[in-house]
Design a protein around this nucleic acid. Structure first.
Length: 777
DNA sequence: GGGGTGAACA
């Protein structure tokens, strides 16, 4: 009867507490027995003596071959069980094969040997009830038959054990917490833990509870527990797994609770360190790079040095991660410090360490130092302490660095020596770098030669090769050939990606073929090529610059529908576009949208708005914006002042323009560029202040600002008004000397003026590139 | 049990 309650086929309910009839004092016959009239002889209390191995199979076979109803009256079984230890009981129950059978056996033990586990008797102060072991095996069977996502049977069994006052064995508790944890049943895990006798708790079960708490987002509870452990208030010593558990929580984004903060992690790692537990190299590297990636190199530095201070063993990997982070922040000082430290601590830099350093030097255009470092790495010079074998990545870094500064021929030579001198084969990245080098230098033919060579050498071109060549052709204004090449490659099976489309869309917009650019966007969508935000930015910018703001706006909507956001650059492009169209309302709409999206306006945004109000002659608003801009710590730059100066000149307030010019040079420490000089020189000449304009030209030379054709045109126009021939000849000589080519404006000014005064010979020499004042009149 | 650090295209 009782056993029916355990029949899991009758779900639900799964388990009902057996009626309190299992007490030994119950007179009711509890089993259908074949010999009810012959009650079994009184059995001595079970003495779980030393294990007899051979008795286990005997007991198991007896249990398997007889009906559970017969067990209570089976004296043979009883006697066999007398010699079984608690651990044998566990083994026996395990071997019963099913949850149902094991439960029947548990039930038999529970009811027929109450002396050991009566519900009223307290648990043994030492050791644990033999029943707990049998129950553990029951749980193990349940686990096997359970759906791990919703362990309903386990929960029911756990409640059953509480009702039956069968204390949990350590392993039972472990099992339950593990499964409840996996099923995100954190409350149940906590209850199991609290049911487990405190003296039985070990670090393993604590770790599982910790994991359960963290996985269900109860970060504060988990951290409190860790804190107690670290302060030795929990009677268990933390181990490596404890720290691993906490660290993994730091790395997985937790949606149900809050995330673990950097400061907390540092505190915890330090606490563990004081217990002699350190994150291994992989963890530490991960920590360091996560800190660095979220812009907290200081924290990364702190955690690495803390581990080192407390005696953790370190290798190059976490140092490499920190070097990368510092490199991104351009913190050369601390990079050097770190290298010195590695040497002091006898931590050998590896090929990646050198890769990071070389890459950083290349990014700063310090290619010769990069080559020097590469030599040093190889231990080429006497006295070099290290000898690291280069790999293809570090070779590629060098080659890329050379190509980026226009030394692609050297890069090519380096690639030629890679195999013989450095023992590594060029790969796709190697070729891509050099192809890009030739493309950027405008040497498309050389780039294609290399493209052919790579195929011949069995190096597979990839989508970046394709994009590099397409971009190269676009930059040489061969947009049509670029598109043809793209089509041809797609036919051959080399598919383009969103970058290919971004390149082409930008190029077609720039060559004023907006419709083709839009068609390409459609082609991309239809070909099933996944788009990214940048391809939208390319088209939106192109449309805006072409003045097609309605189209741009419709692509902004499409971008948002696709789940992307505008970036600050595209926001600025749009604001500028509306301002140029004199549609301030719409520009302001974009500005508000930007604020709403949480994108902060930058100096370019303010400059755009300042320029707009300047252009309109609304100096009051322009200055108000200028003030606001400075409040937000965006210092006005040469563009800002340029807009103001230009606007004041245009409005005829030349003195105001000069005032700003003088201010920016002296007190504001912003040096004027040639645009500003040109504006002022032009305005001064037009107001008949040719002397002042000439002195500004001298000022330019002094400050090292290069005069261009516009500068000379403006000045020559002024000189023509005054008919200052000698000065004009001097300027013409300067133009020749500085290889500053005259344009049609120059020619217009000079042709009219010099013909009128009979100096056409000077003009002829000037056009031919000779100095004019040295010529014979 | 799985987890980290350096290279190419807009």
């Amino acid at each position: 009867m009782r056993l029916r309650a355990f029949n899991f086929k009758n779900l639900p309910p799964l388990l009902k507490p057996p009626k309190p009839q299992f007490s030994s004092s119950t007179a009711t016959p509890r089993h259908f027995s074949t010999e009810p009239q012959n009650p079994p002889p009184p059995t001595p209390p079970l003495q779980f003596s030393e294990d007899h191995k051979h008795t286990i199979p005997q007991i198991v076979s007896l249990l398997q071959t007889t009906s559970p109803d017969e067990w209570p009256t089976n004296t043979h079984l009883h006697h066999l069980l007398l010699s079984a230890s608690p651990h044998s009981l566990l083994k026996i129950t395990r071997q019963l094969g099913s949850l149902q059978k094991s439960l029947q056996f548990f039930d038999y033990l529970k009811n027929d040997y109450p002396s050991d586990s009566s519900p009223t008797s307290p648990p043994a102060p030492l050791g644990i009830s033999p029943l707990s072991f049998a129950f553990q095996a029951v749980l193990e069977h349940a686990v096997r038959e359970e759906d791990p996502k919703s362990p309903a049977k386990l929960l029911e069994l756990f409640n059953f054990s509480k009702e039956q006052n069968v204390p949990l064995s350590l392993n039972s508790a472990t099992l339950l917490i593990k499964l409840f944890g996996r099923a995100k049943m954190c409350d149940e895990s906590v209850t199991v833990f609290s049911e487990l006798r405190p003296d039985l708790r070990n670090i393993h079960v604590v770790n599982l509870l910790l994991d359960s708490l963290l996985k269900s987002g109860r970060i504060d509870d988990a951290l409190k527990m860790v804190d107690k452990m670290l302060k030795s208030q929990l009677n268990v010593q933390p181990n490596d797994t404890t720290m691993d558990t906490v660290l993994s929580a730091f790395f997985t984004r937790n949606w149900s609770g809050r995330n673990v903060r950097e400061e907390e992690i540092i505190g915890i790692v330090s606490g563990f360190g004081e217990h002699g537990i350190f994150p291994d190299s992989v963890w530490l590297t991960q920590l360091v790079s996560k800190f660095c990636r979220s812009g907290k190199c200081d924290k990364a530095w702190e955690v690495l040095h803390m581990v080192m201070r407390l005696g953790g063993e370190l290798n190059a990997a976490p140092y490499n991660a920190l070097l990368t982070g510092l490199g991104k922040e351009n913190d050369f000082r601390r990079m050097n410090l770190l290298m010195i430290e590695m040497k002091e601590k006898d931590i050998s830099p590896d090929v990646k360490t050198f890769g990071i350093l070389i890459n950083h030097l290349c990014k700063c255009h310090r290619v010769d130092e990069a080559l020097e470092t590469f030599k040093k790495m190889r231990g080429g010079n006497e006295g070099d302490e290290v000898c690291v074998v280069p790999d293809v990545v570090v070779c590629n870094t060098i080659i890329h660095g050379l190509c980026k500064v226009g030394r692609q021929e050297e890069g090519l030579k380096f690639m030629g020596n890679m195999k013989l001198e450095h023992g590594c084969m060029p790969n796709t990245v190697t070729y891509n770098s050099i192809i890009d080098g030739f493309c950027k230098a405008g040497e498309i033919e050389r780039a294609f030669e290399l493209f052919e060579r790579m195929k011949k050498d069995g190096v597979e071109p990839n989508v970046i090769t394709l994009n590099t060549l397409v971009d190269g052709m676009c930059k040489c204004e061969r947009v049509g050939s670029a598109l043809e090449f793209f089509d041809k490659m797609e036919e051959k099976g080399l598919k383009g990606n969103s970058t290919t489309y971004s390149i082409l869309i930008t190029a077609f917009c720039r060559s004023n073929n907006i419709d083709k650019a839009m068609a390409l966007f459609d082609q991309m969508s239809q070909s099933g090529c996944p788009s990214d935000a940048i391809v939208y930015y390319s088209l939106i910018s192109g449309l805006t610059r072409a003045g097609r703001l309605d189209d741009a706006s419709s692509f902004v909507s499409k971008l948002k529908k696709a789940g992307f956001c505008l970036d600050i650059i595209t926001y600025n492009v749009l604001i500028g576009g509306y301002c140029r169209k004199n549609k301030f309302e719409q520009a302001y709409e974009i500005f508000k949208d930007m604020e709403h999206a949480g994108v902060k306006p930058d100096r370019v945004t303010y400059n755009t708005l300042v320029s707009y109000f300047c252009e309109k002659g609304d100096f009051e608003t322009a200055h108000r914006l200028l003030k606001k801009m400075m409040q937000y710590r965006f210092l006005p730059n040469v563009v800002t002042y340029g807009a103001l100066i230009h606007a004041y000149c245009k409005a005829g307030h030349l003195d105001e323009a000069m005032k700003i010019f003088k201010e920016m040079n002296s007190s504001l420490k912003v040096s004027a560029n040639n645009v500003i000089y040109n504006t002022l020189i032009d305005a001064l000449c037009k107001s008949d202040k040719v002397d002042v304009a000439l002195s500004l030209m001298d000022d330019m030379k002094e400050k090292g600002v290069r005069a261009n054709t516009t500068t000379y045109n403006a000045m020559l126009k002024g000189l023509r008004e005054r008919n200052w021939l000698e000065k004009a000849f001097k300027l013409m000589d300067e133009m020749t000397e500085k290889a500053c080519n005259p344009d049609y404006v120059t020619m217009e000014i000079l042709l009219e003026w010099l013909s009128a005064v009979g100096q056409t010979e000077k003009l002829r020499r000037f056009v031919q590139g000779y100095e004019v004042s040295a010529s014979v009149p």
